[in-house]
Design a protein around this nucleic acid. Structure first.
Lengths: 257, 257
DNA sequence: ACCTGAACACCGTTCAAGT
DNA sequence: ACCTGAACACCGTTCAAGT
C-alpha cells in the first residue's frame, strides 16, 4: 500500500515533487474528496460532516476513503492544510500589491478577511486543527505538513516586517522581536474574522460592518507600532478598495455572485 | 413537565429570580451536569464529550439529561453560557481594580487571558456556539440567554470606553463609535488567546511567552487609539502583575497548583 | 409531573475477501 | 497493491412504561 505513507506517519509523498501516474491519480482523488468534504461542511456545519456522508457523496468505498484519511480528525487536519494552502498562495499574490509596505501589510490582512468569507468553515478548521483531539489523532505526516505550512506563512509575514523595520517605516520602539509583530497582526486579523463569522447571531457585533471594523482595528494597531504613514495622513479605506480591485477582483465577484 | 421550559423555547425559568424548591433542585442538577460535562471535555476534547459519557458519569438517566439539554448542541450552548457567566463575574471584579482607566482595560483583558488558561475548552465553546450547527439546533431559550449575556458583557466594556472618552484619556480621533473600540479590544484579546491555546503545537507561536505577547498586542493597540498614558511612559508589565496579585491571586494559584 | 432505560437509526472504524 | 462493503462498537435521540 504505497500511498498509505500519506497518513501512516511518513511525509514522503508530500515532500517528493514528482509523482508517478498512480500517485498522481491518488493525489487527484484526494483533492476531489476534500472538495466534497468542504461542500458538506459548508452546508451542514462541522458536526454535519460525517465519514458516512463523505462516502455516500463520492464514488469510492469506505475503505478507500480511510486509505486517504486515517480517521475523522485526520480529515479535519487535511481541511486545515487546504485552508493554509489557499491562504499562502493568496498571500504571495498580495505581496505583489503595488504600494507602501504598510499597504502591503493591509493586503495580507485582506487575504484573511476574504478567506474567512469565502470559506468560513475552512477558516475555522485552522483553529479546530489546534484542538487536542486533532493533534492527538491526526496522522503524524499530516501534522508535520500542517506545521510546515504554518512555518512558511509565518516566514512570509516575518519577512514583510523585517523589510519595514529595515526601511525605517516602523518606529524604533517596536523593533524588539519580529515574531511579536507577526503574532500581533495574526491574532488581530484572526480574532476579528473569527468573531465576524458569527456576526449575524451575536448582537454585540451585528451592528458593525465587518470590513470597517477590521480596518479600524488594523489602523489602530499599525498606528500603535508607529508604522508610517499613519492613518491620519493616509486614506487606508481607499487602499482596501484598491486591493480588492487590483488583486482579488475575481474572488470578490465569486463572493457576491 | 414544568422545567422543560428551560430548553423548549421559553426562557421563563432563566428570567425569574425566585425559584421554587423543585426548580432549585433542577437548577442545582444542571450545574452539576455542566461541571461533569466540562470535566469530560477538558480530558477528552470537544469530540470526546458525548451524551453517553455524560450519562455514564452522573447519577441520572438519559431521559433526565435530555430534559436539561434538548440535544448535544444545546449542551454546548449551555457550556458557552457557563463560560460567559464566569467571564462577566470576573470582569465585574476587574472593574474594581484601582488604577487608571487604561489599567482597568488591561484588567478586563487579563480576565480573558486567565479564563483561556483555566478553562481552555470552555473558552473555545464561545466560538463553537457561534457555529451554524449550534445556532440552528440549540433551544431558543438558551440562545436568547447567550445573546443576553453577550449583550451584558458588551455593555460593560462599552461603559469603560465611554468613561475613558468622557475623561479625555482617549484621543479625539478614535471617538467615532464606541462599539468599534469594544470590538477591537475583544477581537485582539480573543484572537491572541485562541491562538495561544494551540501554542504548543504551532511552531509559529511556541517561541513566545504568551503573556508578553498579549501585552505587546494590547500596548500597541491602546497606544494606537491614543489612550493615555502611552506605553512608553508607563510600565504596563508592572500593571499586569499588580492585577494578578491584587485581583486574581486565588485563580492564579489554582492555575499553578 | 417527572424519571427511566430499552430501542433504533446513524456514525466511526476495521478487516476478510475480492480484483 | 489496492479496493470493497459487511460487520461491529459506540453515539444521539425518542418514547412507552413506570413512579
Amino acid at each position: 500500500m504505497t500511498f498509505l505513507n500519506c497518513n501512516n506517519d511518513s511525509p514522503k509523498c508530500f515532500i517528493r515533487n514528482i509523482l508517478t501516474k498512480r500517485e498522481q491519480k491518488i493525489a487527484d482523488r484526494e483533492v476531489e474528496l476534500l472538495n466534497v468534504a468542504e461542500a458538506i461542511m459548508a452546508h451542514e456545519g462541522f458536526s454535519g460532516l460525517t465519514m458516512d456522508k463523505l462516502v455516500a457523496s463520492c464514488d469510492y468505498s469506505k475503505g478507500t476513503v480511510y486509505n486517504h484519511f486515517s480517521n475523522k480528525e485526520d480529515l479535519f487536519c487535511a481541511l486545515c492544510i487546504k485552508s493554509l494552502r489557499i491562504i499562502i498562495s493568496q498571500t504571495k499574490r498580495a505581496l505583489a500589491f503595488e504600494g507602501t509596505l504598510r499597504e502591503q501589510c493591509l493586503a495580507l490582512c485582506y487575504v484573511q478577511r476574504l478567506h474567512s468569507q469565502l470559506h468560513p468553515t475552512l477558516f475555522l478548521c485552522v483553529l479546530l486543527a489546534k484542538t487536542p483531539a486533532v493533534q492527538e489523532r491526526a496522522s503524524v505526516g499530516r501534522l508535520a505538513l500542517q506545521s510546515e505550512l504554518e512555518q512558511e506563512m509565518t516566514l512570509l509575514v516575518d519577512a514583510m516586517f523585517a523589510k519595514a523595520l529595515d526601511e525605517g517605516e516602523i518606529a524604533q520602539a517596536s523593533e524588539g522581536h519580529i515574531e511579536n509583530l507577526t503574532f500581533t497582526m495574526w491574532s488581530v486579523s484572526f480574532g476579528a474574522n473569527a468573531l465576524l463569522i458569527g456576526a449575524r447571531e451575536a448582537k454585540a457585533i451585528e451592528r458593525l460592518n465587518g470590513d470597517k471594523a477590521l480596518l479600524f482595528n488594523l489602523n489602530a494597531l499599525l498606528d500603535g507600532i508607529g508604522w508610517q504613514p499613519l492613518s491620519q495622513s493616509w486614506d487606508y479605506h481607499a487602499t482596501w478598495q484598491r486591493i480588492e480591485k487590483e488583486v482579488f477582483a475575481a474572488e470578490v465577484a465569486a463572493l457576491q455572485g
